[in-house]
Design a protein around this nucleic acid. Structure first.
Length: 533
RNA sequence: GGGCUCGUAGCUCAGUCAGGCAGAGCGUCUGGCUUUUAACCAGACGGCCUAGGGUUCAAAUCCCUACGAGCCCGCCA
């Protein structure tokens, strides 16, 4: 049987296969910024980054590029868009106005947060924007070849995909100078020397555009053209492109027969499923954006989500309670003293940059945060008291912020507790003994000055001692001798939680009580002891 | 219809490429921490590796066939 230590990580397996073909590689990824770039999209770049790192680790000469498909047309008015976008449907994304008005274009609006997220994830590809590549003439040679070999390409598309392109089909789509749309034009001629293309548009306009930015290749030709123009040798892509007769299949043939280039090594990856709602999709609105997730967990955990699973397996992702297990698992892995080679590799590949760590488990912070009511000063005091390392306050702040966001955005109701502003109705269930305890507890607290967590704690436990002040008070209230008081501290703690939170359990009582106002506790415990339903 | 992937403990999944004792985490249960928890520590329970056939000294792993699940085949990763 194989041990974990013997398992080779999938990224290394891919890297080895790729290296068998040569030492110099370009890993490429591409995403269309047509909407919020989500966790699902993240799989593409993390997968690529893992293979890129693996190649570098093996001494290969490797590069990593990300192409934002900013020249793709806006497909439709997505549910999250204003109706006014109807007039922009068909225009390249880089020419569509920004939804918030703060960015240069529609594509930049969605690209910017994604690029920031990449940075935080420790992913640093060379970023290209498709519209700029076209305008710089990077595609021009490919456009000429494609125009000349139009019939050959049409034949490949027909044979491989089974769909016959129409008579007016052309691998190049000009952008109409009148209406600005890219999917409404028909090519009527071209001039290789002048590097221009003639067209007519359904808006009744006609004209001539430059091959350098006047339009773009249709997707199935754009992709292989890009491979050739940039020298792509490795590319991960979603399974939509991997279908029989899909764009990878046609791309392989177009690359070879039209551009004389061998298609890159394919890495097909599966979708990330969101809870029970199915695959994530920008257009259906089933989306968890990367930016949102980065508010909630450290980037390394997000990388880990993808790194630990082979690309061809689908990933179930649920940002509510199951996310805690993911974080837990990662923290556990991270704190192993002597990790095996496989664990080590997972950690290396999950590693982002500039991330700080605390020794406070995420789950514990959930309790601390709520006990402190989100107040960072209180959080720090609790953390210190709990014996954690407090030297790196910035990291603790980061963790606390993550936890706060998670509680607000994704936490299930049962994970939350709050100090009730009025006496909870659950106080009705308190026993006589519990009421006597709360009354005595309230009285003794009111007589004392400042109390530490330990003071509170010891006071509760003093109910086990017959000669304690607390036991005496309780005995008197119940009209019995102190030797007859048999208080189980568990029951007493329940009474405390019931009175304050309206539930049977809660955070460690000592520091929890010391984090609340003493006067409030005196009043609350007294009321609870007297409560009559 | 064509194609891809998956099926291993109650749950989430490693392990399958390269055959060699059936694994982890979570959950559950028990005990501990003279501190109660969704914290921490120790332990236990838990399996016809979807089914059937084949290859092999040896199969969760390789091959074939079913069945089940999900997805892709409009430029949505």
């Amino acid at each position: 049987m194989k041990r974990m230590a013997d398992i080779t990580h999938w990224a290394d397996v891919v890297a080895d296969e790729v290296l068998a073909k040569g030492r110099k590689h370009l890993v490429a990824t591409g995403i269309t910024p047509s909407g919020h770039i989500h966790i699902g999209n993240m799989r593409e770049v993390v997968t690529a980054d893992a293979v890129y790192r693996a190649l570098l680790d093996k001494g290969a000469q490797a590069e990593f590029v990300y192409i934002a498909d900013t020249y793709d047309p806006l497909r439709k008015v997505y549910p999250f868009l204003d109706e006014s976008y109807a007039e922009h449907v068909g225009k390249p994304l880089s020419d569509v106005p920004c939804p918030c008005g703060k960015h240069q274009s529609y594509s930049e609006h969605y690209l910017e947060p994604f690029l920031i997220a990449l940075e935080r994830l420790g992913i640093r590809p060379t970023v290209y924007r498709a519209d700029e590549l076209y305008k710089q003439g990077v595609y021009t040679d490919a456009i000429k070849k494609a125009l000349v070999k139009r019939d050959e390409i049409a034949a490949i598309l027909k044979n491989v995909s089974g769909k016959t392109p129409s008579d007016t089909w052309c691998p190049f789509n000009p952008i109409c100078s009148a209406c600005g749309k890219i999917n409404t034009t028909i090519v009527t001629g071209f001039d290789l020397d002048a590097e221009t293309v003639d067209y007519t548009c359904s808006c009744a306009n006609s004209g001539t555009v430059s091959m350098n930015g006047g339009g773009k290749l249709t997707w199935r030709v754009d992709w292989p053209a890009r491979w050739k123009a940039l020298g792509v040798t490795v590319e991960p892509y979603g399974k939509d492109h991997a279908s029989k007769g899909g764009s990878y299949d046609t791309g392989v043939l177009i690359a070879k027969e039209v551009f004389g280039y061998d298609a890159p090594f394919p890495i097909v990856y599966e979708w990330i499923m969101l809870g029970n709602e199915g695959a994530m999709s920008s257009s259906s609105g089933v989306v968890v954006s990367i930016s949102d997730m980065l508010k909630v967990v450290p980037p390394e955990v997000l990388r880990y989500l993808i790194i630990r699973t082979k690309p061809e397996k689908h990933i179930k992702f649920d940002p509510s309670q199951p996310l805690l297990n993911l974080v837990d698992e990662f923290e556990r892995l991270h704190s192993i003293d002597s990790p095996g080679s496989y664990e080590k590799r997972i950690l290396e590949l999950s590693h982002a940059v500039g991330i700080c760590h605390t020794d406070i488990p995420f789950k514990h912070m959930i309790t601390i945060y709520q006990a402190a009511g989100g107040d960072f000063g209180k959080i720090m005091r609790i953390v210190k008291r709990a014996g954690y390392d407090t030297t790196n306050e910035r990291c603790i702040k980061e963790l606390a912020d993550n936890v706060g966001n998670w509680l607000e955005m994704y936490a299930p109701a049962f994970a939350k507790f709050s100090v009730k502003s009025e006496l909870p109705v659950q106080a009705a269930s308190l026993s006589e003994l519990q009421r006597a305890f709360l009354a005595s507890f309230s009285k003794l607290i009111s007589q004392r000055a400042e109390m530490s967590g330990e003071d509170y704690h010891n006071l509760v436990y003093s109910a086990k001692e017959q000669d304690s002040e607390l036991t005496g008070e309780m005995a008197q209230l119940l009209g019995v001798g102190p030797e007859q008081i048999q208080a189980d501290p568990k029951e007493l703690f329940k009474a405390v939680y019931t009175a304050v939170l309206g539930q049977q359990s809660g955070p460690k009582a000592g520091w929890f009580l010391s984090s609340l106002e003493k006067d409030f506790l005196v009043e609350r415990f007294r009321k609870a002891s007297e409560y009559q339903p």
